[in-house]
């Protein structure tokens, strides 16, 4: 899809995506001439289709990891496989993915050490949809730190969930 600013007759440029909301994704485009912005809301099926193709709005700053789509979206994975660091490369076009980098940056700001996850809690975390999993993990870790839990168990997850009003 391409977007045109009717006022300026200029191709609009991708600016950013916002955090997914109930499976839908919002992409914001901006006219480089008049700086008018508009938001495109994609319904959950369109968002899912984008994921199915393993492409990213805004482009990629790094080449896709091997088996990235399978690893990201398969619901219940074998925990013994693909445990080492994945080889990464860079894209030829040097594109960027504001959504991916925004999430990454958000978690780089977290403290490097945190409470320890029990295997049961990790297993439960695996069931959280991948695109919100990192965010959920960070929120629960923050909750555990603030409330003095050195270990994140499924009970701590339940408490955190109640605390978040979910």
């Amino acid at each position: 899809m391409k977007f045109l600013c009717l006022e300026c007759n200029t191709a609009m440029e991708f600016k950013e995506t916002t955090t997914p909301d109930q499976g839908s994704l919002t992409a914001i485009f901006e006219c480089p001439d008049c700086f008018a912005e508009f938001a495109m809301h994609m319904n959950p099926w369109e968002t899912q289709m984008l994921k199915s193709l393993n492409v990213q709005l805004g482009g990629r700053s790094e080449a896709a990891q091997p088996m990235e789509m399978v690893q990201s979206f398969l619901s219940q994975k074998n925990p013994n496989n693909l445990t080492s660091e994945a080889p990464v490369g860079s894209t030829e076009d040097g594109g960027k993915c504001p959504f991916a980098s925004a999430v990454t940056e958000a978690f780089q700001e977290q403290e490097p050490t945190g409470p320890v996850w029990t295997p049961e809690a990790l297993e439960r975390l695996e069931r959280v949809p991948s695109f919100v999993r990192s965010m959920a993990k960070a929120s629960i870790e923050e909750f555990a730190r603030e409330n003095g839990h050195p270990e994140i168990t499924t009970e701590v997850m339940d408490t955190a969930r109640g605390n978040f009003g979910m």
Binding site: K2, F14, V55, Q56, G59, A63, G95
Partner: peptide, 17 residues
């Protein structure tokens, strides 16, 4: 008439695949 898709380069990403 529009040269690209605004920066996502979806076609480029698929071509790379």
């Amino acid at each position: 008439d529009l040269p690209a898709d605004g920066g996502s380069n979806i076609v480029g990403q698929v071509t790379q695949q």
